[in-house]
Design a protein around this nucleic acid. Structure first.
Lengths: 156, 156
DNA sequence: GCAATTGGTTGCGAATCGCAACCAACGGGA
DNA sequence: TCCCGTTGGTTGCGATTCGCAACCAATTGC
């Protein structure tokens, strides 16, 4: 509690809320950072934590190109290339040549990866549901809707 | 839009909300990952993006030990030691011996770092405020309160 | 058909992390 | 008081990762 405001704004002002927002997202980030590694391991023992987000995105958004991933994650395309190579070696991602462009390849998660990801997500949701036991369905839905609106406001 | 649910749950169920929650936090993560690097640069051109969160935590939570940081970020204490060393070289962090324990040292941000962080936070809040222009003060406050409750529910 | 661009891979140097060994200081017994 | 186990922190080392740049292949535009 007591999200100590380092700034001298009056409590309840918009500026104060924005400060608290940054603070709370900081908490989220630190927790996620801790959780991500074990989630990656749960999918595959040799899956680097840094690749989990990428695999997760591919899983839920469908096939796309390496270059799209590179831009989305603001990473070098070389680094992406190696990560994809590793994921392919692990049998989690398949590269199929893009029929529309001979240079490009479409990345897609394998059935095996989809199964494993689904299992990990089920476990995660069970854990979440337990932690949010005192949240009503309406509370949760409202929260997700607002978070979604927040993302929509910030993603240009 | 259309947060495509890979899972076959019926829309509106609690399970569906939990799935959306994961999705939206994924969006948050990718955006934050993109933003963090430039924020770090704004504080100091030689500040590694990975150290920004640490400096930010020190700035808003006050002095603490390296070991506390290591546990909070789930990182090796050796890695923390080097990061702190680097931050000290940059003049952003000071190490003062802990009067209560001769082994330990208390980390604290320098005045210079505090000024720079404050400036970056001001800019960031201005940007945020602009993006959230169509949010009422009540919307924003409710969102922060709910996010805070969410963190409280998950942080044990 | 040739030049410029784009998608992707690879080589290389720099930086980072985890593990482990290590040192110094604290603390609880015998 | 003297040990000995524990804790806070630094350092060495091997492995991994990233960014930059050079490079190849395929596409697009003129």
């Amino acid at each position: 509690m007591s999200a100590k405001a380092a700034s001298p704004e009056r409590v309840g002002t918009r500026a104060h809320s924005l400060g608290r927002l940054e603070h709370e997202f900081g908490v989220v980030l630190r927790r996620v950072k801790r959780v991500l590694a074990e989630r990656a391991r749960a999918v595959h023992p040799d899956l680097p934590a840094s690749s989990y987000l990428m695999l997760s995105y591919l899983d839920e958004s469908g096939p796309c190109r390496s270059s799209a991933i590179a831009e989305l994650f603001a990473m070098d395309k070389g680094a992406i290339s190696r990560q994809v190579q590793h994921l392919a070696d692990l049998g989690l991602v398949e590269r199929t040549p893009d029929p529309a462009d001979g240079r490009a390849a479409l990345l897609a998660v394998t059935d095996e990866a989809r199964r494993r990801m689904a299992q990990v997500q089920r476990d995660r949701r069970r854990w979440l549901d337990e932690r949010l036991g005192d949240w009503s369905d309406e509370d949760l839905l409202a929260f997700v809707d607002t978070l979604s609106r927040y993302n929509a406001s910030l993603d240009y």
